[in-house]
Simulated assay, not measured.
Amino acid sequence: MMAAATTASDSLWQDIRDEARRAMAADPVFGKSLADTVLIHGDFAAALADLIGRRLGGSAAERARFTTFSLDAFRSQPGLIETASRDLQGIARRDPAIAELLPPLLHYKGYVALQAWRVSHWLWHRGQIDAALLFQNEASNALQVSIHPAASIGSAVYLDHATGIVIGANVVIGDEVTILQNVSIGRHSELPARSPRIGRGVYIGGGATILGDIGIGDFAKIGAGTLLTSDVPAGCTAVGNPARLTNCPEPASAA
């Protein structure tokens, strides 16, 4: 199984390098930055670790520290790179504005913020709590995305636009979820203070707030600006403040 994951990541890395070479040929000035950020590296793990360091580190020393932490995580747990590959491919599939892998890798801060979170999550579960929280804090400062290291997030997740996203501790997010800007997901102020659980393929519109011990079923949609504090069945759409359900599949509507 590990060999298959490595092969998939290697194939994606080759595609990225091919795109970088074509971009260099089309624009030699832009090509210098591509040489520094992509083509200088031997594999996707090294390039992604360097990218995280560049975006989170304000000084050379900070950049080196974030890069080292990230590369240690990717080398110790290669599955993180496979997941990062699926995240990148998920953006290319779901964003109609692009058709390649290089633009979201280099320019989509939501992608970098998510990969920085994956490193922080790895650190958190290794007991390196201070380092994990440092990643969260710097991603919040530099990228305006704050994801607690104790959250759980699946693969092929797309943080679209990304500014103002807050995801609290113990939130569970499934595969292929899309989250737009200014979304808050976390615990309710009332007890018991438990966090939302979000299923596969869910779409969360900009400015939505999702709070408390609730579940959102697979492929549900949460409209922009929605305040959600109760469950959403699979396939339903929740809109408004307070939220109401619409467009539910027949079994959910009947229930």
Rank of each mutant, 00 (worst) to 15 (best):
I214L: 12
F74L: 00
S140Q: 10
R194Q: 10
G201N: 04
D95K: 14
R17E: 08
L134T: 07
Q136H: 06
N137Q: 14
I216R: 00
A254L: 12
R17L: 01
S9K: 00
D218L: 07
V171G: 08
F219T: 08
P196S: 05
A4P: 01
A45N: 00
G31D: 12
V183G: 04
T68K: 15
A45T: 01
S9W: 02
Q14T: 12
P249Q: 06
S230E: 15
R17A: 01
L101E: 00
R94I: 13
S85E: 05
V183T: 08
P149L: 07
L88N: 03
R244H: 06
A5P: 04
C248V: 00
L245T: 05
R75Q: 14
P78E: 01
I198R: 03
A47I: 07
S33R: 11
E100F: 06
R54P: 03
D18A: 11
G31N: 04
A49Y: 02
L211T: 00
I98F: 09
L56S: 03
I147C: 13
E176T: 06
I40C: 15
G110W: 02
A150P: 06
D18S: 10
W122P: 02
A46M: 00
N241R: 14
P149F: 02
L228C: 12
A243I: 06
D27Y: 01
E82K: 08
Q77D: 15
D160N: 09
G58S: 11
T83A: 11
V145T: 14
N141Q: 15
K32L: 15
H41C: 03
G240Y: 09
V183P: 05
L134R: 11
V177I: 11
G205W: 08
A3P: 12
S9F: 02
H121L: 12
L88R: 01
L227M: 13
A252K: 04
G79M: 13
A84I: 09
I153N: 07
A243K: 03
L88I: 06
D213P: 03
A208M: 05
D160V: 00
R65N: 05
E19G: 00
I214V: 03
N241D: 12
S152K: 15
M1D: 14
G212D: 01
A131I: 09
A84H: 04
W117H: 07
A84D: 02
K221E: 10
M1W: 13
S9E: 06
Y203W: 11
H125N: 13
A64N: 14
G225T: 06
V239C: 10
R200F: 07
